[in-house]
């Protein structure tokens, strides 16, 4: 049994460079707090974990299902405010407020979905763009309850140690990304969300003619995307100990798109790579505040010019060679396929 597992592990992970790299990346993340307990670094990485969940949830909804959402920060903000208010006003602990916050985002997802079912393309994007702005208006209208410009502050920490914070955020990121990856990869008879989301993105008429209830699955995509974005938002609120209007900001909605496109859209691992490169980079560039945004813009332009499919996908394509016969991934230096020994050159 163990031998079989090891063999599977070797065939499915070690032999594929992309997956091996992902494994190493996760191992390095696990080890980092052992090497250094620098609070700034751990805090930056913990936020990178949170934003990775956020970016992957956008990729699931907009990349995979094709419902380009320009207001993804809505889900982030709804969960942040919900968990912050529940914690502050009702005294609920973080382990209760975070799931409730995420569920509030699911509700927000379904609400956004209602007009989205009738709209397509740019019209849909513009409507989604409006939702966070509407919520911001509501927040500024009820300042007594929501704190207005200042937000809701003084909420409970998740833990008192940076290392624990980091490990919790890492575990949540790992589990969330794995679930979303499985959802977009699923092709079995039991769960077929992967193929269905893809079919909806490509041709909704053909999908409907195949008997797929596209409305239900679009709702599912909004609900799942909302849920994970909500998890990220609620965690963010508890880490920062504040939920404010910045959580609903347009800039956040666009940043998630930039991270995802930078890493590689419709790939799930792309947004994770995008966030882990861009977010720490932007943090460390705070020492050069004058040119920080310029460097950010320059990097994005260069990447999109030379690697339009995203940096993670670009690197993966360079490292892996797909067998023309059996479509198995092989390391780039192999001349023949490891399974069917077809010629790879």
């Amino acid at each position: 049994m163990i031998r079989r597992l090891l063999k599977d592990f070797q065939g499915d992970v070690v032999a594929i460079p992309g997956r091996l790299l992902a494994l190493l990346f996760f191992l390095v993340l696990i080890i980092i707090p052992v090497i250094t307990t620098d609070s700034y670094l751990l805090r930056t990485l913990a936020f990178a974990n949170i934003f990775a969940i956020f970016a992957v949830s956008w990729d699931l909804l907009s990349g995979y299902t094709g419902q380009i959402n320009f207001g993804h920060a809505l889900f982030f903000g709804v969960a942040a405010y919900t968990s912050a208010l529940l914690n502050l006003k009702l005294g609920l602990p973080p382990w209760a407020t975070i799931p409730i916050g995420a569920l509030a985002s699911v509700v927000a997802g379904v609400v956004v979905c209602l007009p989205a079912l009738r709209l397509r393309g740019p019209y849909l994007s513009l409507v989604t763009l409006a939702f966070p702005l509407i919520l911001l208006g509501i927040i500024f209208a009820f300042t007594d309850f929501t704190g207005g410009e200042l937000g809701v502050s003084g909420i409970a920490r998740i833990s008192n140690s940076r290392v624990t914070d980091f490990y919790i955020s890492f575990a949540v990121m790992f589990v969330s990304v794995m679930i979303m990856w499985k959802l977009t990869d699923a092709k079995s008879a039991l769960v077929r969300t992967g193929i269905i989301f893809h079919a909806i993105r490509e041709d909704e008429i053909a999908a409907r003619a195949s008997g797929i209830n596209t409305i239900r699955y679009k709702m599912l995509a909004f609900a799942v995307g909302g849920f994970f974005a909500g998890i990220a938002g609620a965690f963010h609120a508890h880490f920062m100990r504040i939920a404010g209007p910045a959580n609903l900001d347009l800039f956040l909605s666009f940043q998630v798109i930039i991270w995802t496109v930078f890493g590689g859209i419709t790939s799930i691992y792309g947004p994770v790579v995008g966030v882990f490169i861009m977010y720490p980079l932007m943090e460390f560039l705070r020492v050069l505040p004058e040119i920080r945004m310029m460097i950010f813009a320059a990097i994005v332009v260069v990447i999109l010019l030379f690697m339009p499919e995203g940096i993670a996908v670009f690197i993966r394509d360079k490292m892996e060679r797909q067998c023309p016969r059996c479509k198995l991934s092989n390391v780039w230096w192999r001349k023949t396929c490891r399974a069917c020994s077809a010629n790879l050159r």
Partner: peptide
């Protein structure tokens, strides 16, 4: 995958 999508039902 196209055929699998057709086999949705």
């Amino acid at each position: 995958d196209n055929l699998l999508a057709g086999g949705f039902l």
